[in-house]
C-alpha cells in the first residue's frame, strides 16, 4: 500500500480506471440551405422536453450568412393553479434565459419579456383557463451574428415563433398561429393572415429610415407568411403522422 497516498487520490489498488468512449465533436450537418440568397431556414421540433406541458425547439439560420444562427428551446408549463386573488382569466408569464453565454443586458431581457407577454396576452384564449397561470420559459441556446455580440431582432422573432409552437404543442388554445417577420431591424408579429398586428418592435434605427411604415410592415408580412407557412406545414404534417418525424423546411 502506498503510504504517501493519504488522501486516497489513487484509490484502492484494485480500482479500475474510468474510460470514456471515444467521441469527437459532433459534426453538425449544414442545413440544406441550397444557397438561395436571402433565404432563412428553420428547423422545428416539438415536444422535446418531457416534463413540460409543451415545448418546441427552433433552429433558425440567418439570411445573411450561414454562421448566423439562433437556437431556442421553449417550454410551456401549465395551466397551473394560481393562489391568491380570484382570477377569471389565466395569467401569463414569460421568462427568458440565456443558457450559455449571458450577453444581453438584464433590463433589455425584461423589456423583451414584457413585449412577448403582451403579444401572447392578445393571442391566448385566456378565458378558458380561469384561476390559473401559464408559464413560458425561453432558453436561448445559441445566437451568433458575425460582428455583433447578439442580434436581438432575430432572437425576438424566434421567441415569438417558438412560443407559438410550444403553446400549440401544449394544447393551449390560441386564436391564431401567430408568427413574426423581420425587415431591416423591424419585427412585426402578425395574426389573422397578416391583417392585424399584435406586436411591433423597432429597437434600433435602420438604414431605411425614409421608408414608409406601411411598406415596412408589408415587407415584414412577406417574411411572416413564409414563417407561418413553415410552422403550419410542420404542425399539420406532425399531426398526420403522429410520430414526430424530424422535419425541415427551407423557406424560399
Amino acid at each position: 500500500m502506498n503510504i504517501s497516498d493519504r488522501r486516497r487520490i489513487l484509490g484502492p489498488s484494485n480500482a479500475k480506471l474510468l474510460t470514456f468512449d471515444k467521441s469527437g465533436p459532433v459534426e453538425i450537418e449544414p442545413i440544406s440551405s441550397s444557397s438561395v440568397p436571402n433565404s432563412t431556414s428553420m428547423y422545428i421540433e416539438n415536444g422535446l422536453i418531457c416534463n413540460a406541458n409543451g415545448s418546441s425547439y427552433l433552429e433558425v439560420t440567418g439570411s445573411t450568412s450561414e454562421a448566423d444562427r439562433t437556437l431556442m428551446l421553449t417550454s410551456v408549463y401549465g395551466p397551473r393553479p394560481s393562489r391568491g386573488a380570484f382570477n377569471a382569466k389565466a395569467t401569463l408569464s414569460v421568462q427568458f434565459k440565456e443558457v450559455t453565454l449571458e450577453k444581453i443586458p438584464a433590463g433589455e431581457l425584461k423589456e423583451l419579456c414584457n413585449f412577448l407577454s403582451n403579444v401572447f396576452n392578445a393571442v391566448i384564449n385566456l378565458e378558458r383557463y380561469p384561476k390559473s397561470g401559464i408559464d413560458v420559459f425561453l432558453s436561448l441556446i445559441h445566437s451568433s451574428n458575425g460582428s455583433q455580440l447578439y442580434e436581438l431582432e432575430s432572437i425576438i422573432s424566434t421567441c415569438v415563433n417558438g412560443i407559438t409552437l410550444a403553446l400549440i404543442d401544449a394544447g393551449i388554445e390560441i386564436f391564431d398561429t401567430v408568427s413574426a417577420g423581420i425587415y431591416e431591424k423591424h419585427i412585426v408579429a402578425f395574426v389573422k393572415n397578416g391583417t392585424e398586428i399584435v406586436g411591433f418592435w423597432k429597437g434600433k434605427d435602420s438604414a431605411s429610415e425614409s421608408e414608409d411604415i406601411l411598406s415596412i410592415i408589408e415587407q415584414c408580412k412577406l417574411d411572416y407568411l413564409k414563417n407561418r407557412k413553415a410552422m403550419v406545414e410542420y404542425l399539420v404534417r406532425c399531426n398526420d403522422k403522429e410520430d414526430h418525424l424530424q422535419h425541415e423546411v427551407t423557406k424560399q
Partner: peptide
Amino acid sequence: APVRTLGLNEDYVSGITP
C-alpha cells in the same frame, strides 16, 4: 427607434391593424 407596441392592460389587448 425604439418604436414598439406596449401592453397597457391584460384584458382588452388584441391585434391592431397596420
